[in-house]
Computed example of a mutant assay.
Amino acid sequence: MGIELTKVTPALTTGRMPVEGNTQPAGLLHGGASVVLAETLGSIAAQAHAGPGKAAVGIEINATHHAGIREGVVYGESRAIHLGRSTASFEIIISDESGRRICTSRLTCMIIEAR
């Protein structure tokens, strides 16, 4: 996927991903690739919130794809909506290099005991 993290905190986690290598047959960024970027950023933020001895596991994700993109890089920004004891929820915005919104996603993770 080529995802690169640029900032990791529970409140704000950011990263980027190349379009090249993550396209569907028509040459557009694959919607599933956008969801992978969103879930990666949100899950990493949830794990940062959970802390030692805990694990964050995704329990719900959704995505709305607003625009297509054929080349370049997309940027993701995961912002915490709720950071609780047993769940954490995030809004993840994916945009292109000019700031145009490509996808909006929401992720909820459950915080569990690590094994």
Rank of each mutant, 00 (worst) to 15 (best):
I3Q: 02
E4A: 15
L5H: 07
L5A: 10
L5N: 03
L5S: 06
T6H: 13
T6N: 03
P10V: 00
L12E: 13
T14F: 12
T14P: 05
G15N: 00
R16C: 13
R16T: 02
E20N: 06
E20R: 09
G21I: 03
N22M: 09
N22E: 11
T23R: 15
G27Q: 11
L28Y: 15
H30L: 05
H30I: 00
H30N: 15
G31T: 03
G31Y: 13
G32T: 01
A33G: 10
A33H: 09
A33S: 15
S34M: 14
V35Y: 14
V35G: 08
L37K: 02
A38R: 03
E39V: 04
T40A: 15
T40N: 06
T40E: 11
L41N: 02
L41H: 01
G42K: 00
S43I: 04
I44D: 09
I44G: 06
I44A: 09
A45Q: 01
A48N: 09
A48Y: 11
H49T: 02
H49D: 04
H49N: 07
H49L: 11
G51C: 06
P52Y: 07
K54A: 12
K54F: 09
K54T: 03
A55R: 08
A56F: 09
V57I: 14
G58S: 08
I59W: 08
I61K: 01
I61S: 15
N62W: 04
N62P: 04
A63Y: 07
A63V: 05
H65T: 00
H65P: 11
H66A: 07
H66Y: 12
A67M: 05
A67P: 02
A67W: 04
G68V: 01
E71D: 15
E71N: 05
G72S: 02
G72L: 10
V73H: 08
V74L: 09
Y75A: 01
S78D: 05
A80F: 06
I81R: 12
I81Q: 14
G84T: 00
S86A: 14
S86D: 11
T87L: 06
A88R: 00
S89A: 15
I93Q: 09
I94W: 14
I94E: 07
S95T: 03
E97C: 03
G99H: 05
R100S: 12
R100P: 04
R101L: 06
I102H: 11
I102P: 08
T108I: 07
C109N: 15
C109F: 09
M110Q: 12
